[in-house]
């Protein structure tokens, strides 16, 4: 088994809700992420899936200290990132990068793409002048962009090309670890495949480790080694990829997998869906007991009283459910 690169222990990210202008008082708290414990191994892709509002993006940001976690530790190569000052964190940012979801909003429209990609190199004083320029061209070639376009602006590029620009920028500092926050969900189907392949190729060539955040379970299955399913700020199930999709134990995972439409009319006609009733409860006022019991098809009275722990059911298959199936 490969070494642990990142060790996340009891991570909590709570956002206070305040009322009043002059005398702000706290009237509530959104528990976006509420006690996550998992590790990410060197060279692997850990998929993180869940519906909107389950806290998957917040988890990515809290790991990179873009939000300072409320509680818990994020240990990267033996160093607890949550204890570092902003100044100390800067040097770690070289190794920990992020690719954002929306390639239309995450690139500065007033900068040429050459300067967008080169900015982190200059900022961290790694190279300057022609050396920096050469590095930018090399990065552009690496992600499949023509270096002749370095003087163009983001609006001249399509969504897929912009996502490549974002990837080149994330790679500029030669990181070990990249949080990919829904990197393909804003792209057209035929372009998604190009970007997914590129990410996978880069991981192999450069020895990268990914936290791949997405709501599309089919894409996550394709790219991940292990997958974690989140619900309302907690992990419902975490298992090696094949195991999770073939043998899902948590009723939420089962429902999620059965809800994915499959591009085959014959399969679709025969499938039986677990249609969940209702919606994800508000994280402002989460249910007592198991967070999923309000929508769970197999909930029993215990579920509304006591929250299940995330327990190992063998071979690294972790499930947080009182009555796991299968």
């Amino acid at each position: 088994m490969s070494n642990t690169l990142l060790d996340v222990r009891g991570l909590k990210m709570h956002f206070p809700i305040t009322r009043g202008v002059l005398f702000e008082r706290q009237v509530g708290v959104v528990k976006a992420v509420d006690g996550l414990t998992f590790d990410i191994r060197e060279g692997e892709t850990l998929g993180l899936v869940g519906e909107s509002g389950c806290g998957k993006s917040t988890t990515g940001r809290a790991i990179l200290q873009l939000h300072r976690p409320t509680e818990g530790r994020v240990i990267y190569r033996g160093q607890d990132l949550t204890r570092l000052t902003h100044q100390q964190m800067r040097s770690y940012r070289r190794q920990l990068q992020i690719i954002f979801q929306d390639p239309y909003a995450s690139l500065n429209p007033r900068m040429t793409i050459g300067s967008i990609i080169g900015e982190p190199i200059g900022e961290h004083g790694l190279a300057s002048g022609t050396e920096k320029e050469d590095r930018v061209y090399e990065l552009m070639r690496l992600v499949g962009l023509n270096p002749d376009f370095a003087r163009r602006y983001p609006h001249e590029f399509s969504g897929g090309q912009r996502q490549r620009i974002g990837i080149a920028r994330a790679l500029a500092l030669e990181p070990d670890f990249i949080v990919c926050d829904e990197p393909v969900s804003a792209l057209d189907v035929s372009i998604q495949a190009q970007v997914v392949n590129l990410l996978d190729e880069l991981r192999e060539r450069l020895g990268l480790t990914y936290l791949f955040i997405a709501h599309d379970l089919a894409t996550v299955e394709h790219i991940s080694d292990r997958v974690a399913v989140m619900y309302l700020g907690r992990i419902a199930e975490l298992a090696p990829c094949d195991e999770l999709y073939r043998n899902p134990k948590h009723p939420y995972t089962r429902a999620l997998i059965s809800a994915i439409p499959i591009p085959d009319p014959e399969v679709e006609a025969k499938r039986r869906r677990v249609i969940l009733r209702g919606e994800v409860p508000s994280p402002l006022d989460p249910p007592v007991g198991c967070l999923f019991h309000t929508r769970c098809p197999i909930a029993q009275s215990l579920c509304s009283q006591e929250a299940p722990m995330l327990e190992d059911h063998g071979q690294g298959h972790l499930v947080a459910c009182h009555f796991p199936e299968g």
């Binding site: 189907v189 035929s190 998604q192 495949a193 089919a218 394709h222 999709y245 073939r246 997998i257």
Partner: peptide, 11 residues
């Protein structure tokens, strides 16, 4: 091409 480029469950 479109049908082939979509990742499918149960690879």
């Amino acid at each position: 091409g479109l049908l082939k480029s979509v990742p499918r469950l149960g690879r």
